[in-house]
Design a protein around this nucleic acid. Structure first.
Lengths: 240, 240
DNA sequence: AAGAACTACTGGTCTTACCACTTGACGTCT
DNA sequence: AGACGTCAAGTGGTAAGACCAGTAGTTCTT
């Protein structure tokens, strides 16, 4: 029996989700006006403040433009949204979007080595020591789910060492997309997160402040699983 | 006379801004509870729905965790925030944060060539043709402000050509940080946005589907101004 | 000492009313 | 005919107050 916490969606949550669904699904096209708050409240059977909260959140995410006195306009989420929207695009309606998944993999493989390089330049021994501890923790388990979480901790430390706020934020965004899928990815990620030697090599390169070596080590660590998953995506896409 | 649109911050805007300021400034530390909605409404002299809207927006941005029945907790924005927070970190209180600026430059130089490479693989002639048009438009002006906007249009097309949603979202985030500073950067960016030949070279590489050439061309285009600005930041940081 | 019930918070939601802004239609001057 | 006010309708912005629904700590009961 696999019990999971019940998801208690609040009313504004629900409204937000529905509106976003309409947008991603294409029913609410860009540059078209959203129905008025009162209208939405009536149609959805909720209060106007609830609708407002949802709409304000959409505005915060850049999905709509709200102008006092005029109708609020839907914007092209592809052009305005930040990485925080990634989880919803990756799994729209529970189904994995292959194009988005490919994009995430590409980005991961491109960003990871750079972060490792910066960490080698700036992180120093403190980062390396913390990484050693994490690798030790990884050695204590075989469970690929736990291993993935530990690997995320590991990268979190590398990102700290890189000391570059933009890469930190990019990492945050990618992690948010990755986490919901962690269980589904247990099998494909097992070879990567089980490759402790690669994690140690990277930690040592960072300790030695050898940024080219760190770069290569990170690529060595990330490439195999990335290549495998990209190949799988290619096959799936051809099937259709 | 340089008239500018008056900024009409709504009450929730103002509340959001104040809370964020306290967080970035350190007065509201991570893992500490926020005052209750009623208390905040009272202290700030606004209605509770207004406070709620602000807090919901913070939750949307990952800055706080709100749990029904318990106090809402402040989270470490460095660890949770996405790129959408970048503009506020870059110019906290009107003053440029040099470390953040350095980080933006690093990211730009690392992401740009990769996007160009992908655009060469996937964009094809359509992308190249659109780029040609944009370069023509750039040739029609000397104003560095206008040129920067055109250059953004140019990159926007390249990103479209790259057809990778994650890089698109990263670009969106960087652009949002860049745009408010566009006037202040007129002088330092002038050499880059005035280098039309570099933009043409990149467009041609994309047309030829020559991804290594596109990569190099993008780097060639971005590196000079990046290096100059990084050097300037180094000097400013040493002064202190 | 362990458990159940209670209490005092917290956020969640709704209703109602009114303010402020934008737009476009209409009328009025020039 | 054109330019300029005026006004009405619709939109988002804000407030106040009431009540529902969770959480956590205290107190009472056993």
């Amino acid at each position: 029996m696999a019990l999971r916490p019940v998801s208690r969606r609040s009313v504004p949550d629900e409204v937000f989700e529905q509106l976003l669904g309409e947008m991603v699904g294409g029913a609410l096209a860009a540059d078209e006006p959203l129905p008025s708050e009162r209208r939405l409240a009536e149609v959805l059977g909720v209060s106007r403040p609830a609708v407002r909260e949802a709409i304000q959140r959409m505005a915060q995410a850049g999905l709509v433009d709200v102008r006092h006195g005029d109708a609020t306009m839907v914007r092209d989420f592809r052009r305005r949204a930040g990485l925080d929207l990634l989880p919803r695009l990756l799994l729209p309606g529970g189904q994995l979007d292959l194009a988005v998944a490919r994009s995430v993999l590409e980005a991961r493989l491109h960003i990871g080595p750079k972060i490792a390089e910066l960490a080698a330049q700036r992180g120093g021994r403190d980062t390396a020591a913390a990484l050693d501890d994490t690798v030790k923790a990884m050695a204590g388990t075989e469970d690929p789910i736990v291993l993935q979480h530990r690997a995320l901790d590991y990268w979190d430390l590398v990102v700290d060492g890189a000391d570059s706020i933009v890469f930190r934020m990019m990492f945050n965004g990618l992690r948010l997309a990755y986490q919901p899928a962690i269980e589904a990815l247990a099998t494909v990620m097992a070879p990567e997160v089980g490759n402790l030697e690669a994690y140690r090599t990277l930690a040592n390169a960072i300790r030695a402040a050898d940024s080219p070596a760190a770069r290569d080590a990170a690529e060595e660590l990330l490439r195999p699983a990335t290549a495998q998953m990209l190949a799988a995506i290619d096959m799936l896409q051809e099937d259709r």
